[in-house]
Design a protein around this nucleic acid. Sequence first.
RNA 1: GCGCGAGUGGCGGAAUUGGCAGACGCGCAGGCUUCAGGUGCCUGUGUCCUUCGAGGACGUGAGGGUUCAAGUCCCUCCUCGCGCACCA
Length: 825
Amino acid sequence: MDEPAQDAPDDQADSIDRWTKVWAERRVFEADGLVEDTGDDRPRRYIVTMFPYPSGDLHMGHAEVYSIGDALSRFSRLRGHNVLQPIGWDSFGLPAENAALRMDRDPREWTYDNIEVQAEGFRRLGVSFDWRTRLHTSDPDYYRWNQWLFLKMYEQGVAYRGEATVNWCPKDNTVLANEQVIQGRCERCGTLVEGRSLTQWFFRITDYAQRLLDHMDHMPHWPDDILAMQRNWIGRSEGASVDFEVEGRDEPLTVYTTRPDTLFGATFMVVAADAPIAAELCADEQRAEFEAYQARTWAASDIDRLSTERAMTGVPLGRHAVNPVNGERIPMYASDYVLAGYGTGAIMAVPAHDQRDLDFARAMGLPVRTVIDTGEPDPAETWVATTGDGTMISSGDYTGMGSSDGNEAIVADLDARGLGRAAVNYRLRDWLVSRQRYWGTPFPIVYCEACGEVPVPYEDLPVVLPTEGYDLRASEGMAPLDSAEDWWRVDCPRCGQPARRDTDTMDTFVDSAWYFLRYPNPDYVDGPFDPRGIERWLPVTEYIGGKEHAILHLMYTRFFTMFLHDEGMLHFEEPFDRLTNQGQVIMEGAAMSKSLGNLVDLQDQIARFGPDAVRVTMLFAGPPEDDIDWAHVSPAGSVKWLARVRRVAEDVGAASPAGGDGHLETRKGVHRLVHEITELMETRRLNVAIARSMELTSLLRKAVDGDPGPADAAVLEGAEALARIISCFAPFTAEDAWAALGREASVAEHGWPEVDEAMLVVESVTCVVQVDGKVRDRLDVPPEIGEDELRELAVASAGVQRQLDGKSIKRVVVRPPNLVNVVIG
RNA sequence: GCGCGAGUGGCGGAAUUGGCAGACGCGCAGGCUUCAGGUGCCUGUGUCCUUCGAGGACGUGAGGGUUCAAGUCCCUCCUCGCGCACCA
């Protein structure tokens, strides 16, 4: 009975092999009816954890997120739901190419080797995936549907080709989406990003901006911070478009402003130096100066952008515009402080009421005219712009109006004259999907001299990546596929003349924008996803993953879902009912990294403590969304608890069980805890659920060692309940315990413990007796005690009498049966 | 600068319809078991006072307020974290 703890690594390995085999043989974790109706009427739950990128073996972060997803899946399954927990790999991407270059290997070898390593890692972690869903985005059978979806978007005008200044990473030799530029640097390699003009494929996500925004008002199960980040990213603002006539140009120049009330203070205009309009507007005598400035902007804009206190620079364009409200001629400038990609790439500058404009005016010696009285000192004297609302001054007929009335009046008048209109603007820009990489989905487009841009016919998909004849070391400005001449040289699908394939590949965020739709039938050949699977499982019940995908990935999935809904392919417009963001696993307050030398190796942790203890440690450390500092938690403590669970099960299993309901107090304790744990699991407070499971373990230990001893029906019931419960967190230990209790595998097939409501009834509760809000006594009272009776008992209690000391009672607040507060004042 | 979130023992964290602050665990201290222990078990552990009583004071970032009662609600402020950052 007093066997030492059996938690040596050898036993863990045995346990892992034994149970993973049993689970696979018995198909314990396969959902019932992936696409067919099998008559299973259990409610269905589709619990998806963001699929991994196969960068190597699984790391601590994977262990955390899959521990959470698996706990929720296993709990849901035990509660009688038909659960689908899928797995796949996000297996296209740049690291495979970098690794391939480094090791002189084929990127697919590196990728698929890593996938096998990770799959084995998941098996050893005991994650309850339904492996029939397994997909890899780098399989032609998967990415052909990227191409198919691209063609659908192309037909709808949602995919289009456009010339644009793009973010160019000179080290990775590729274009980056805005979202992949962090502080002016490449997200992957940290190199400073340059501007460059290329023709690229875009998805028109901006058409969906308002819808993306509107839906968020009705997404209660998404975290607030994620919603806020997405709103911020979409960046909606309300204002007006105002047309400025430009001398010597037929077309007026339209600017966007959120402050039409400041129009009388516009003393000059500025266009983005890197916008095409700047070059067009530039007068001949200014051209040399302008082009020098433009070149500087091109090369250095992002470096400068990083410095906070940088001098304002710009060049005059040698041209004037006319202010539509007062007919005033104002000079035009080009500067890098105006962004080409936002609004129209041109602004009206109101130096008095915008700090950037004021700084520019000061640098260029331009006039400052104050037109809003905010009660603050005059910007023309302080060089501090007054940016708030106020009363309009020096503004013609509008003088005396408040900012908001003035806004409306000016916009209405401009509108009537055809010179302006109310407008909404978004910060969100179209999604640039072209990448000059090899390891991605080829665009199904062919360029023909006669026919131009020609889509590859659906029946010719997939356009498969060449496996040879390409050079990853593409020279500057060339995509790797440009080197695969045998591959890109094709006949035009329309006219049959020699033509050339698009040699770019798709952003890998395209792959992950819809993968969760394909899981129910990853082998489906009649479309990107099986409508029967969609009908049965989608939308996703719960989506779990890191906050680093708060904007990009989640916005793209939402956009794809809306597009597919509009195409009549989906019956819903939002992909994920509930979103959970887990925190990071950190070390001594810092993110783990090779350079800091604080990397904790998952395999090493598993070898030392076992997969269950690692999982329990992750979940017990705190709420799922909090970061876990591995230096502050104790896997050894988890090992200890799991050994206690195992010993209790062994001790109970070794005793011959007695009949009947068993020891009443034990039974009540068990049912009270099971009841609590059930609620905690349902509200996802996994760390507290584990705390209560530890209490249940202690309760059983005491019962086994004292009254009523191990051979009691209530103790057996409790031990079985404990095994079922911990199968959510520590599946291997749970199976060992279940087996020790003499039960048939698998514990995961035996459901969640039932709670007998009768066991939750208590015959006495502790009533807190306060005097002036301070606890002075405690009374054991029947739960149904009446107010008057409780008041009397409380006032008569020793604690109250001691405080009373001759003073009179002002008032008694009675909240039966939990609390009495005697106010003596 | 704008937006979001958080401040509770030596540590991770419980307690969110206002009602016993510190559950559970780590760490630490003492004891028992053991040939031994980086094992197991038991006990204690917010701070301070104490006449050691089943006593008392204080205590959830700071200050104020509402209330019989505030970690929880309201106001002001401080600190930290995260996100976006020339968005006109």
